[in-house]
Design a protein around this nucleic acid. Structure first.
Lengths: 236, 236
DNA sequence: CGAGGCTTTGAAACAGTTCAAAACTCGTGG
DNA sequence: CCACGAGTTTTGAACTGTTTCAAAGCCTCG
């Protein structure tokens, strides 16, 4: 039982795949997309070693991707918010190398990759857009590389908060006040820190009056301060 | 004055782009490639903010890519050996976001991206191969993410040594004995460590008789030991 | 052969971790 | 509707891997 929503009606079409497709060709893209039932918090969208069939656009909610090392510890590799594409790391190996799990009730649009590939050869702007998406994912990984390798724990947390804010803004929401969809554990894991450290930093950033924290509810009080802290280009 | 070498004669064709192209179509790929004069150690292939025109296949030598933070410190984001493709991070932004610099005398094949894109719509296996390459770059970034966020300094260095070895093997060279093309500074920077730490670790790994080190000359003496150290899947 | 860059080594300092424990949330079932 | 309990978050104190500072030795290439 697939839900009947079309890209035309979707509020995310301006930041999602459709933006690369002319209106007259949108139907073709639209028809290949499968919109399944919502994922409940904790449910998997796919698991490592599943065969790679599709990429997914997040429609609502939030997901995390993670992989497992041989010793069995988890590494959170990314967070995905509405309008973002998840699952591109599987293209090269024909099976997923990471798992994707819902952080809260979420809906996604499934885009079968073989069909997307075929359509891409017909619509150059779509091919280009997809190259761009992957390239930008690489760029972001490089920025994360710098974050992990050069920045202090405070900078890392500040940077994540700013990033979530900026991604909210892309959807027309406040970049100043929002709810973090992930736990302190996930944040710590993603940023290569201990949970205790992350918790202490939230408290500290609040004491410095850079943000106000209430559980997962965040409000940015002093953006320049927070940016300066993380020395990150302060878009938004 | 472009050098006259064709993909047909190139010993790297089995790990480089040509592997995705049928022999009868190889000429078309071949014709779009420009082979320039060698880069001397320290010369740039491109710099951050240069407009993005092409990706490059390394033919000989070795390069590093790096980006600069606002404060002006360098982050080495990758090392590129013969047969590998460098420059894909620029696709999404129309200009390069990092710089690429020769670590030693190197030659590269320049592949104009617009032409590659056009050819990709005609040769689906080429399109697929390019998606795969980018996807694998993302995968590797994710493994690096885990390395930086969860592993000890010793594990990181061991892992890099094993990676360089494996990449030598792909070209039919020894995966046990080789020369590192990069300085201790570059290794430290890439792995998020201090130079002194890296130097100490090389000494320590040698004391443990896992490797033998003579400057940049490396020999792996106890692969399982080195793998076990870095807990990395020990291919090769 | 000399100079600047690399590499190594030692000792002190520190950022972040680990261990331990208490306090809070929130969904669930009685 | 309230109480229970598992998972999450916070806080404190001791510990440790890595960095920083300092200095000497070593290539290598002009």
């Amino acid at each position: 039982m697939t839900v009947r929503v079309s890209c035309n009606d979707c509020s995310l079409s301006q930041i999602c795949l459709p933006l690369a497709v002319e209106p007259e060709q949108l139907d073709e893209l639209d028809r290949m997309i499968r919109r399944g039932r919502p994922l409940k918090r904790g449910e998997h969208l796919y698991r490592a070693a599943d065969s790679f069939e599709a990429v997914y656009a997040v429609r609502s909610g939030a997901l995390k991707t993670y992989s497992m090392s041989e010793e069995g510890d988890e590494q959170v590799t990314g967070f995905y918010l509405p309008g973002e594409i998840v699952g591109m790391d599987g293209i090269g190996t024909a099976h997923h190398v990471s798992s994707a799990k819902a952080l809260e009730t979420s809906t996604v649009c499934e885009i079968p990759f073989t069909q997307l590939e075929a359509l891409s050869t017909k619509i150059p702007t779509l091919q280009r857009h997809f190259f761009s998406l992957m390239s930008r994912e690489i760029q972001e990984d490089r920025m994360l590389h710098m974050l992990l390798s050069k920045k202090s724990a405070d900078d890392r947390v500040a940077s994540l908060i700013l990033s979530i804010g900026a991604r909210h803004q892309r959807r027309g929401l406040s970049n100043t006040q929002f709810r973090l969809p992930m736990s302190r554990y996930d944040i710590a894991n993603y940023l290569g820190l201990a949970v205790e450290t992350v918790s202490r930093i939230f408290t500290r950033l609040q004491q410095q009056e850079l943000i106000s924290v209430d559980g997962r509810e965040i409000q940015i009080l002093d953006r320049p301060g927070l940016c300066g802290d993380s020395r990150k280009t302060c878009t938004s």
